[in-house]
Simulated assay, not measured.
Amino acid sequence: MGEGEGCLSTPQPPMSVVKSIELVLPKDAIYLAGSSIKGKMILTLNSTLVDPIVKVELVGRGYIEWSEEAGASRDYSRNVICNNKADYVHKTKTFPVEDNWLSAGSHTFDFHFNLPPRLPSTFSSKFGHVFYFVQASCMGREHILAKKRMYLLVQGTSAFHKETPLQNPLLVEAEEKVSYNCCRQGTICLQIQMEKNTFTPGEKVVFTTEINNQTSKCIKTVIFALYAHVRYEGFTPGAERRSRLDSSELLRQEANTHMTRFNTTKIVSTFSLPVLLSVSSSTRDGEIMHTRYELVITVHLPWSLTSLKAKVPIIITSASVDSAGCQSSEDGVLPVSPDHQN
């Protein structure tokens, strides 16, 4: 998110002592958990300001909410609201003001914050969100004179990959006996091969699909899709623990290849992962959501009543700032191209 994007400003009256308040941060940056956030606050005054409080805050929060029926043994006409929230970071930098006054004109204040080493990624869905922002403010003796907020993109980290054995290389197979032309039967075998199934955001996922068609029918369409399965953990007003699973399709490709009868066809596919992703996570107390990923390959059989599917677990991790190496441009800040800003 670049300078001037995603900023919320407090409207100023025409004769306010504060002319403007600005935040200057690297343009289109994704911050790694554990990295530093460096920027400037520029405060421009119309006149002298006495006893000001000038500060910048770094805030990270998460909130989820959904409604569901009260329960099988209760009144189905009544919905209950389930929600949960988390505070991930809140740091404040208050700038010293010499002689407790600022003259008319522009004043620049440099600041930096260190993000905690373990954070969830910036996230948004119909059930919740995780967001981070830097907020600058200037206060007089009794009230806020001006403030501005700029939202940040943060790539989170997790210890998931340290606890789960890596499955490299990976081979997944599926087989289906199908009926067609009334009394004829055949077998279709699906095999997916990957050199690894553990990736970082922005990395390319390469896999080979082998389809052994032992029928007298041709196969024309294969769908490759990457799904994110998010489990939300919330509580009812009565403090009962509830959870909800929501799945979404992140990436999709369709291969229209003529796969002849009694033959084997190989398809090599590549997915480019988004540069900002929630990392895979196992269930832990105190976390409001947990994410897992799955690559699903579907062979459509229009001449049969069935389709053949194979599912491959995908693990998303994120390197720490210390080990990010050439991924980092400076202090764990990753630039994001315009194609990946949303």
Rank of each mutant, 00 (worst) to 15 (best):
M1D: 08
G2Q: 09
G4H: 06
G4C: 10
E5K: 01
L8W: 10
L8H: 07
L8P: 00
T10D: 11
Q12P: 01
P13V: 12
P14D: 14
M15L: 08
S16A: 14
V18N: 09
V18Q: 07
L23Y: 02
V24N: 09
P26L: 11
P26Q: 09
D28S: 10
I30Q: 04
Y31A: 01
Y31E: 01
Y31K: 03
M41T: 14
M41C: 13
I42M: 06
L43S: 13
N46P: 03
T48D: 10
V50K: 14
V54L: 10
E57H: 14
I64W: 03
S73K: 05
S73Q: 10
S77M: 05
S77F: 02
N79D: 03
K85P: 00
K85Q: 14
D87R: 12
Y88A: 06
V89Y: 03
K91F: 08
K91H: 09
T94Q: 14
T94V: 15
W101F: 15
F111K: 11
P116C: 08
P117T: 09
L119C: 05
S121Y: 10
T122W: 01
H129C: 07
V130F: 00
F133Y: 15
M139Q: 12
G140I: 01
G140P: 01
K147S: 15
M150Y: 00
Y151R: 08
L153S: 08
G156Q: 04
G156K: 05
S158G: 02
S158K: 06
H161C: 14
L170V: 11
L170P: 00
V172Q: 08
E176C: 04
N181E: 15
C182Y: 07
G186Q: 08
Q193D: 06
P201M: 04
E203Q: 15
F207W: 03
S216C: 10
S216R: 10
I219H: 09
T221E: 10
F224H: 14
A225V: 02
Y227S: 04
Y227V: 04
E233Q: 11
T236N: 06
S243H: 13
S243P: 00
L245D: 06
D246N: 03
L251P: 01
R252K: 15
Q253G: 00
Q253T: 01
N256Q: 13
T265K: 08
K266W: 04
S269F: 00
S272M: 02
V275K: 13
V275A: 13
S278N: 14
S282L: 12
S282Q: 15
G286D: 08
I288R: 05
T291K: 07
R292D: 05
Y293V: 07
I297N: 01
T298R: 07
H300R: 11
L301C: 02
L305S: 07
T306V: 15
K311E: 15
V312G: 01
V312E: 06
I314D: 14
S328Q: 05
E330L: 12
E330I: 15
D331L: 05
V333G: 00
P335R: 02
H340Q: 09
N342M: 08
